[in-house]
Design a protein around this nucleic acid. Structure first.
Lengths: 295, 295
DNA sequence: GCTCGGCATTCCGTCCAGTGGAACGTGTTC
DNA sequence: GAACACGTTCCACTGGACGGAATGCCGAGC
């Protein structure tokens, strides 16, 4: 049904204890929708969540009344447009996307390849936006989908420039092999991240998808912490990574500067919240100041 | 704080009866976040929803545990990235956006102006996607925001080509005046829609925002029902609407054809669900076949 | 420095909304 | 036409949810 399964594999819905609170149960139903599910039946939802059928039925009726879920053509349930609209109100993604779009467009226009805006989410790279066109190499990524950080150009930047804690967790989570070229040993990954720091941009040479390479550059906030990354992704034979690197870096640099400018005017909401509080506010990239210098 | 207020005014949160069910109350808290709210305090959320503070507090804790809401830097609550990701799973918007993006990019590249992908939502036009760049005229629209159908190029297409029922409801809802040029009398609107049908594309001449004009063309499904529209929007003095119309129409036409092709392969989810069931499956545009013909 | 006001948070006795096994109706399969 | 799977409704039991009241925490103002 959907050829993009590989990116966001169906969560194997564990037989975890069903939460007791009604609210949590209702939200469980929303989570039951995987990234590639168009429409789910009551029976499926009941099975995936572990809720009794009558319970699921009743809660779904409420979700439908709310508007976040709608009934599909063939009796099933599907996530609705209202939910999409609600998601667009998330302040962090919105300000980032709006500020970044012009730069993404410039990169797209220059290359006509896939251009991504990504943030870190746990040990993954999460794609906030994707620009591509007819001439772009078809790839698996989607807006809202994720890939393991260790095998993507953007993800490696987060691991190289972010708090060491993140790298530790990523290694501990296991370096999944997506292609024969994926770096799966902690030692080689560390070496690769060191090279990433030296060069000032991230690379992915067929490490997440066969035949696909990418260049990425980091975006910093006013404290010089990495908050996002932009990348160009395309077919290995078409993309000249070394030639594109300066363009990506320049775009990321200008974007960083614009974000800093805006944030001093108090119009931005980019803070990570409490999630990465473990970070002591230090600027992890300060040891490599050339990341912010001219290329 | 946010210069885009005008697009999506803060909903005046009525003193409506608080729903009884726990789930509905929790979801009410999500709805309490307006399009421009970055962070809300417990007190604000309690006031907006009408929930008692302890209740709101408890429910919010559950929303935070779920991941859809996060605690901001200054103690408040805000919608999180997970919610954005969840919203991206809505199948209709996803398939449309993915199919349309290349065409939107082409239009952007040709004009460097704002390019929209919109669908109808009640009596509004809802923007599913927006492509713009540094050179584009700054306008108020955002992804996920809406404007009244009667004063937008895309919205007029929905009113002109969709079931008469929609037009009736829009008129009945009152034709809000956004600028001096907004069409606010039903008679003039009907005349304008007739012209829209004749020409085959929608126009907006400073009717939603002073100094801003737009051209739009409709996208049809396999039954020739309008399901979406694309538009180019920019400064009145810069945009030559008559010259751009063929480009927009061509893009919309190719996109329509692609969608029909894909839907016969069963890879698409574009149906309106039950919302517009009142529509008897008829093809409202059939009386104007040239909409699907060459320009 | 102290008070006051507004906020978030916790407590706890009352009570009603939520639960899910069972039963039913319907449409599809063998 | 029996068997099955699915969505839907029913209803007596029960434990989760409610919210007024009390507490703790800050920052502003005198």
């Amino acid at each position: 049904m959907d050829e993009h399964r590989a990116v966001d594999p169906q969560p194997p819905e564990p037989r975890a204890a069903v939460p007791k609170s009604v609210l949590a149960r209702g939200l469980l139903l929303l989570d039951a929708f995987g990234p590639s599910d168009a429409e789910l039946t009551l029976a499926e939802l009941s099975a995936r969540t572990g809720l009794a059928k009558p319970t699921a039925h009743r809660l779904l009726a409420q979700l439908v009344a709310w508007g976040g879920v709608e009934r599909g053509t063939r009796g099933g349930y599907r996530l609705s447009l209202s939910l999409f609209v609600l998601g667009q109100r998330a302040p962090r993604q919105r300000s980032l996307r709006e500020a970044a779009l012009p730069y993404l467009e410039d990169l797209y226009e220059a290359t006509h390849e896939n251009v991504h805006l990504a943030v870190q989410d746990g040990t993954d790279t999460l794609f906030l936006d994707k620009v591509s066109g007819r001439r772009s190499t078809p790839i698996v990524s989607r807006v809202g989908s994720r890939l393991p950080a260790h095998c993507t150009a953007t993800g490696k930047l987060f691991l190289a420039l972010g708090p060491p804690e993140h790298l530790r967790r990523a290694v501990q989570a296991g370096l999944a092999r997506l292609t024969p070229r994926t770096i799966i040993t902690p030692g080689m990954l560390r070496a690769d991240l060191a090279r990433t720091l030296d060069r000032g941009y991230g690379l992915n040479r067929e490490e997440s998808e066969v035949g696909v390479t990418a260049v990425a550059a980091p975006i910093f906030d006013h404290r010089r912490r990495v908050i996002a990354a932009v990348s160009i992704t395309g077919g290995s034979h078409r993309l000249d990574l070394e030639r594109l690197a300066p363009a990506v870096r320049t775009a990321a640099l200008s974007l960083s500067r614009e974000l800093v400018r805006e944030s001093t005017h108090g119009r931005l909401t980019l803070d990570e919240g409490d999630r990465n509080r473990s970070v002591g506010g230090a600027a992890y990239s300060e040891s490599r100041p050339h990341f912010l210098g001219a290329s």
